[in-house]
Design a protein around this nucleic acid. Structure first.
Length: 655
RNA sequence: GCCUGGGUAGCUCAGUGGUAGAGCAGCGCACUCGUAAUGCGCAGGCCGUGGGUUCAAUCCCCACCCCAGGCUCCA
């Protein structure tokens, strides 16, 4: 038979040859690196017999597909090790995921894994790998499958899901690894004892594995449903070589160094005192400075963008939230009410929109005022579940840079484009310039507004995205019931995605509050509302910036922009003059006395990530110059004229 | 809310059923220095909070608070 290779060449093989045979025929090196094959566009085992005219590509370990196979196979070995160490353990699903794999277990007698168990399991896994056990694929009928996994309830549930209506109750992750709507199931056997339900493919034998690490234990609900049993999940990672594994672990360490919670403490920006409570931050002077600069810049841009500033209280009687519907739709996210003596209940505000609506409704509005853009750095409080708070990116008290735009129906499309352009422009000013958009469309079931309104609004959002030439990912049915939503996803310096800005149309609240304006036709009309957050929350946006910049904020945002270091005490007066000159130019400068060796002072300030470390000594006093040590730059620059420095730093450091 | 791990000096962490240690930071003194750690000394702790077991608890048990990583949820 003849098969075709990816480069277009053909190979003649004897009948009955497998993908593995093909790899061996091509070369010994390839055969050694092969973990699976791509046969007519489908990943298969190397043991798969080829057919005449097949399109075949050998998949090696050092490819995305190859690593997927490695990880999946390593997950099997993990399950095998666990069932060998804990006889009677139930194993559920164990897919490869980005960067690694996991497997979910239920141990007999409700036993839980501890961190110490990971080392024992790893040892057992290495033993299995050293035995180079073959992975053998078998096909069975549904009934045989159920018999084979008679003591594995989770496997049986999956099999029943497979044989039943397509995809019945099957999680997406599991579905990816199993055939759905099948009349037979495939299993993989290795060793004498272990068999797992699996679509494959797998490496030929466990000896191909070995560059792996188990990372942590976590709880995970069966099929992601908190009403179902909670299983014990073990996460791990696996790679094609020891070097690749080491590199991955180093990347994780790098991400950890960028962690905004760590940087927040190291750079003395903010903290979370236990006395206040979970998810509630205090900003220290340096963090406060950064935040103030962010907020000032935001105000400046909003003012220029035609927004009007409003202020609203932090608490409200329940009536307002009753009218807005939040007491029903957002009850779980709210702090319990404060009850006054007269029985009146007050709530901390979880959102700003109802308040802004009252500003709109405070008097009769004319079409001439539209679009009316109301802006507030509004602090809201949300009762987040205790397990979800995370540094500044998920908190219980936060300040949103929140705007609500009231416009006429025929203004919606233009306004959306305007808003999107504004948002992207400001994000770029903060140094975030890789975006894609996500459009959440009408959810199934009851949604507010007519089909026509939804279609029009969704179209308008799509058009706005197209106009700004950004990739648009559709989140089908992911919109809120009250209107379609577009969210701006930012990609940071190390490739992670963050959802920042959201632009949301709302058909519901204008109706609930009976909002009206008088049109040119002298009739009353209902405005459409656009909810818009740009940073999302100031806290979260700061967290993203810190991680994006690894703490080295651009000069205009840096809490301390420059520090002046006199070489000796007797340069102190000149140094103070330099600091003073920079301050008068509007820069944030510190002066440090010469009570430590210069090298030590420079090191300390470099660790603080100060953009400009300025050194002044004899030469500078004589010539009116400064030694300039730029953050991230190479050698220091000597003899820079003070006025030149003031000019360049002002340009870079003030917005 | 649930699962696993954790909370010891400002920070990072060691340690033990007989009430505690290091490095860095801090303070003092000396050093006065041209680009990433000067030396010596001192001080610093209700061992997260509350209960229990024990002659004795930072250590063992229980509850709660807070933190981390997940699950669910989300800006």
């Amino acid at each position: 038979m003849t098969v075709r290779l990816p480069d277009g060449s053909q190979r003649v093989l004897p009948a009955g040859a497998t993908a593995g045979d093909l790899a061996a025929a091509i070369g010994r090196r390839l055969a050694a690196d092969a973990v699976a094959a791509d046969l007519d566009g489908q990943l298969v085992d190397l043991a798969t017999v080829l057919h005449d005219g097949a399109e075949v590509a050998i998949v090696t370990a050092a490819s995305d597909a190859g690593r997927h196979v490695l990880r999946h196979s390593t997950a099997h070995v993990l399950a095998q090790a666990v069932t060998s160490l804990w006889p009677g353990a139930k194993y559920a699903i164990g897919p490869a995921i980005e960067g690694g794999f996991y497997y979910d277990f239920e141990l007999p007698g409700g036993v839980r894994f501890t961190d110490d168990d990971l080392a024992r399991i790893e040892d057992e896994m290495r033993r299995i790998i050293a035995q180079d056990q073959r992975f053998v694929r078998e096909e069975h009928s549904i009934d045989e499958g159920l018999a084979l996994f008679a003591d594995q309830p989770y496997k049986c549930e999956i099999i029943r899901g497979l044989s039943g209506p397509a995809g019945a109750g099957l999680g997406a992750e599991a579905a990816g690894d199993m055939a759905v709507g099948a009349t037979s199931v495939s299993v993989y056997r290795n060793g004498e004892q272990f068999v797992d339900l699996c679509l494959g493919p797998h490496v030929p034998a466990t000896g191909r594995l070995g560059h792996f690490a188990l990372q942590r234990v976590a709880g995970a609900y069966w099929r992601g449903d908190e009403k179902r049993p909670q299983l014990q999940r073990i996460y791990g990672t696996a790679w094609e070589s020891e070097a690749a594994l080491a590199e991955h672990l180093e990347h994780l360490e790098e991400a950890e160094k960028r962690d905004h919670r760590r940087l927040g403490a190291e750079l003395d920006l903010f903290s979370f005192p236990g006395e206040i409570g979970s998810g509630l931050a205090i900003f220290h002077p340096r963090g406060g400075t950064v935040r103030r600069v962010m907020e000032d810049y935001s105000r400046k841009r909003h003012e220029a963008g035609g927004y009007q500033f409003v202020y609203t209280p932090h608490i409200t009687k329940e009536d307002l939230l009753d009218t807005s519907g939040h007491l029903v739709t957002f009850a779980e996210g709210m702090y319990p009410p404060m009850e006054l003596d007269d029985g009146q209940r007050y709530y901390l505000k979880p959102m700003n929109c109802p308040f802004h609506i009252l500003v709109f409704r405070s008097r009769q509005r004319s079409y001439r005022e539209l679009p009316l853009r109301l802006f507030e750095l509004g602090t809201v409080y949300r009762y987040e579940k205790s397990g979800v708070v995370h540094g500044l990116s998920r908190v219980r008290g936060m300040t949103q840079d929140d705007a609500h735009i009231f416009c006429a129906g025929d203004q919606v499309a233009a306004e959306l484009s305007e808003v999107l352009g504004f948002v992207l422009d400001v994000l770029r000013d903060f140094g975030l310039d890789q975006f894609y958009l996500e459009l959440s469309t009408r959810p199934e079931g009851k949604a507010f507004g007519s089909d026509e309104e939804w279609a029009q609004a969704t179209e308008a959002l799509e058009a706005a995205a197209a106009e700004h030439h950004l990739d648009l990912v559709i989140d089908e049915g992911g919109g809120a019931f009250y209107g379609p939503k577009i969210s701006v996803q930012v990609t940071d310096a190390i490739g992670r995605h963050w959802q920042v800005s959201t632009i949301q149309l709302d058909f519901q609240l204008p109706q609930r509050f009976g909002l009206e304006y008088v049109g040119a036709d002298n009739a009353r009309h209902r405005p459409v509302m656009v909810h818009r957050a740009l940073f999302g929350s100031v806290e979260r946006f700061l967290a993203i910036l810190l991680e994006h910049y690894a703490g080295a904020l651009p000069t205009w945002l840096a809490p301390v922009q420059a520090v002046v270091l006199p070489v000796r005490d007797d340069h102190g007066t000149y140094a103070a003059g330099v600091a003073d000159r920079l301050r008068r130019a509007g820069l944030r400068v510190e002066l440090e006395v010469a009570d430590e060796p210069l090298g030590a002072r420079i090191r300390k300030r470099k660790l603080e990530k100060v953009p400009y470390v300025l050194v002044v000594g004899d030469d500078d006093v004589a010539a009116g110059t400064v030694g300039v040590n730029r953050r991230g730059g190479g050698d220091p620059e000597r003899g820079v004229l003070l006025e030149e420095l003031v000019a360049s730093m002002s340009a870079e450091g003030i917005r």
